[in-house]
Write a protein that binds this DNA or RNA. Structure first.
Lengths: 154, 154
DNA sequence: CCTTGATCTAAAGTTAGCTTTAGGAATTAG
DNA sequence: CTAATTCCTAAAGCTAACTTTAGATCAAGG
């Protein structure tokens, strides 16, 4: 039975459009923390619909689940988040988005310089300057701007 | 021995900063197609340095290897690409980048609307409109804007 | 009460993009 | 010529973000 403020994983899945398996996975990643009923089944709060919705949106922008978990950490833990709480976290989120778009734009502008000369050469192209690139990485998602160290083989 | 225009995988690795294993992987993905010497070792062309450099740059912008292979497909296959060829492909690349940045910006602006109301609700928020979101996907990389169908479990 | 349908857990599978490992050959330096 | 590098292939391993599978339990409807 689903009490007033408690919903099953199936209901949550329908409301968010997520797969049940994805929600269970998100729980292992600390993105939601449902309680259990007498039979051991998960019972979510209605506010988790919004919580997971936020996860979905942030993912659309390329944020990793780790990063999203950090963002969600700014929500109050002692009570159900209010609209104001969500507006706050959304602004933090937007700030990171702006940074991300700006970094992408800067990189694109550097590419422009390279189109002119057609070089794309390690020695001359601004895009290849290691420090330069590292500086652009900022807070964006790893697979958007890249973040791996180049390790030699063996 | 490395002839005038032929370089070994180790040399290519040093010139690009890539790991030898990565270059071999790129070969399996059709991003480079080295010939072999009498002993069976790979012999790349010096122009492959630029080719792989392009791969590295495109990856920084979040392009998948599949996508990059498509872009590289626009280069002439019968001869070594000239600076002009590279400038051409870079422009195609830039066009896609612009599209990508624009899509990201549009999504961000939609988020702005949601910050105001703090809703983040599936029923009301523009970000959740399925058609709306699908329309934004465009040509950007999958993990930047998301591209998976939501499949129910079971 | 009994049959569906929903859930549960644990473990294995999937894709992208590579790296690591193992066991051999080919090259190069001296 | 020999030792140290470099390179080769094939297969397995790794991370992220999930899905799928298998076998079992729970809950809801008639």
């Amino acid at each position: 039975m689903e009490r007033r403020n408690e919903i099953s994983i199936g209901t949550l899945a329908k409301r968010t459009g997520l797969a049940v398996s994805a929600i269970r996975y998100y729980e292992t990643q600390g993105l939601v923390a449902p309680e259990r009923n007498a039979g051991g089944q998960r019972r979510f709060l209605r506010s988790d619909i919004r919580r997971l919705s936020f996860v979905m949106i942030a993912q659309k922008f390329g944020f990793t689940l780790d990063r999203i978990r950090d963002l969600l950490g700014r929500l109050p833990q002692s009570r159900t988040p209010t609209a104001k709480d969500w507006a706050g976290i959304s602004q933090d989120f937007r700030a990171e988005l702006d940074e991300q778009i700006a970094a992408l734009t800067r990189l694109r502008d550097k590419l422009d310089g390279c189109i002119g000369c057609g070089c794309l050469s390690l020695d001359r192209c601004a895009l290849y300057n290691p420090d330069d690139i590292a500086a652009e990485k900022g807070a964006g998602p790893r697979y958007l701007l890249g973040d791996e160290a180049v390790r030699p083989e063996g």
